[in-house]
Design a protein around this nucleic acid. Structure first.
Lengths: 131, 131
DNA sequence: CCTTGACCTTCCAGTAGCTGGAAGCACTAT
DNA sequence: ATAGTGCTTCCAGCTACTGGAAGGTCAAGG
């Protein structure tokens, strides 16, 4: 299977797939013409990676998950721990964004947004500044 | 005012302040010894930048906001539009994270997380893969 | 006067995770 | 033979910093 087909079937850009090879997440074989020759197992790994990335796992997390995935001796507790940690990170991020959102929404609401220059948004950003 | 004091008073790392000078967000004067000499107005700009960044505005947004801040002829509508656009971006991000969170929470919940290898988290990530 | 230590300077490199583009070979169809 | 697509490698760039090395400057203490 050439990279184009893999790209189509996984939904990952070819560039990304090459990059994943570069950082040793997949190691496709090579055809005689120098083209990458992907096996089904490579396709599965890439699908796996695509999903894990879509869930927001970092590349390094993905590497770990992939290793666990390939390790039939793994303890599911390890996977769960990693996922849970990531879940907390997501929660933190959501909380942070929501706090930003609240402040910003308040400011946007307060700004009349017309052709005059006075603007509570800028006012708030400059708070603490004398001018 | 030297960079150390500015750093303390704005809460921004000195490195960041130098970086902001590098990309022309602030242009402090120089003392004879080559040290950066910040005026009050630089401090205000940096405070402004710190707050805008804390609200998640990109550096380029900050540049625009700063220009509007300094422009007494501005129309507040421009500021409001920028803020609103950013608000939408934040909403999108929150929605995306919440969707991730839901999926992940479900998987975490489903995984018993013990010393056995079977793990619905890995199972789901591999979905579509035969193995 | 000299040294120590804190503070400042510049410059280079690296972070995460790709993405774009150039130059050039391989393959397919006409 | 040629055109067009797909593949290859390599280099650079993106965001917004951050870390570290090598070295100049300044104030205080002995």
């Amino acid at each position: 299977m050439n990279i184009g087909e893999v790209s189509q079937r996984t939904g990952l850009p070819a560039k990304t797939i090459r990059y994943y090879e570069d950082i040793d997440l997949v190691t496709p074989q090579r055809a005689e013409n120098g083209y990458r020759a992907f096996r089904e197992s490579d396709l599965h790994k890439l699908t796996f990676l695509g999903r894990a990335r879509a869930l927001g796992f970092t590349i390094e997390d993905c590497r770990t998950l992939l290793a666990l995935y390939e390790d039939s001796e793994r303890e599911s507790a390890q996977v769960k721990a990693l996922a849970q940690e990531h879940l907390h990170a997501i929660d933190d991020k959501i909380a942070q964004l929501q706090s930003m959102r609240a402040t910003l929404a308040h400011l946007v609401h307060a700004c009349h947004g017309d052709d005059r220059p006075d603007c509570p948004i800028l006012g708030d950003l400059a708070k603490g500044a004398l001018r």
